[in-house]
Design a protein around this nucleic acid. Sequence first.
DNA 1: CCCAATTTGTTCGTATGTATA
DNA 2: TTATACATACGAACAAATTGG
Lengths: 237, 237
Amino acid sequence: MNVETPIWRQVRAAIVAEIAAGEFPPGTPLPAEKLLAERFGCAIGTIRRATDGLVAEGALTRQQGRGTFVAGHTPERSFRFFHLRPADGRPLLPDTQFLDFARLKATPAQARALGLAPTAPLLRARHLQCLAGEPAMLEELWLPETLFPGLDGQRFAGRPGTVYDLYQREFGLSVTRIEEQLRAIAAPARIASRLGLAAASPVLMIERVAFAVDGKPVELRLAWADTTSLAYFNSRA
Amino acid sequence: MNVETPIWRQVRAAIVAEIAAGEFPPGTPLPAEKLLAERFGCAIGTIRRATDGLVAEGALTRQQGRGTFVAGHTPERSFRFFHLRPADGRPLLPDTQFLDFARLKATPAQARALGLAPTAPLLRARHLQCLAGEPAMLEELWLPETLFPGLDGQRFAGRPGTVYDLYQREFGLSVTRIEEQLRAIAAPARIASRLGLAAASPVLMIERVAFAVDGKPVELRLAWADTTSLAYFNSRA
DNA sequence: CCCAATTTGTTCGTATGTATA
DNA sequence: TTATACATACGAACAAATTGG
């Protein structure tokens, strides 16, 4: 009479909920598999089944002999979502130049993308990503103010690590999935000049929505990339 | 004393090899897990572990009560690699207009991308992908002649299903993974006119290498997409 | 229509190997 | 060395879906 959801899914959901609730800050180990099995009243294999997906997504990392850890948004981890590389495919860490920070109202399209009420208050941060010292991509980050209480330009620009690391450490929002739309457009004048391009040069425009472990959208990001000597790398199995 | 590769990896490799050798044509069921366990002298769980990855990649499909099948390249399956959609994200099957077919020599860059000797003979097919009746993307397919013996324009254009279905049915090459590079460029005159665009309009250029189950590169594909009312959709966990 | 055989899906428990502290 | 934790592997049982009689 088991038409219910499998135990491993229930366990997975429970663990995700605990992580999303901030019970295990990034870098801390989950209870050992044996303990989890006891706590949830199931077999160790079921615990593994439940965590396998999280490990594959990068939300957890397992280390033989040490434990299972909630993945922090180290540069390498965030890098999973950074697709811009030189033509040879060699991964290159970008460095970021902060531009400005503002508080605005959502447009209908933005509200829809983030699942918010129309004209909900948003925070907007803009910065420039540089690769090998050259301006590579201009980015606009749009954040629901309710999810990022008290965030301002100082705290944003003064963060130590990556943007997603900030979301996770300070607001308990762990980005694990993104959805992107890519288009080729003629660069608007303001953007072209920031990238050191002639006006109306073709640029790669990226529209991203980032989701937290629990599936909630937490960020809308618009980006304009100069792909004359770089490319957006994607690989699918 | 087990420093060797795990059994499940060996089993996986063996199954992949058999599929690549054409022992199980697409659509046919693999031997039941119990049989495979006996044949390989291991437990059923180990068989499942071995096939889990193939299922995730879409090379196999499991159906409770029926069996485990070698996935054919149905339109839906090939669709996993088709990323162009209207802005609303609604998936839309393209239809294809054949343009031409030729036999040429590889450029150094093409040979490198396909892992071939310089100036190896290549087959080139060109076609136009249309979405909702409108020209959406121009594609150039470059194929190593040695992998596609006897392929010509007639057989290419006259195929019943998708391109990848042709590769699999007639040449035993099952595409399971692709790597892509995306760039925004100004459309060359010939391409712009095919897409019904003004010369030098921004288009999304896609460079793809497709790999078979066994990891061998089998196709180099260049594509130019009109993204004025379409977008390239990508999602990563 | 029901029944039985087959096949995958889920879950359990256990044992051993290997890496870490 | 010892204890802990994950990695691999085995075997068993039952559930659920499918198929064919």
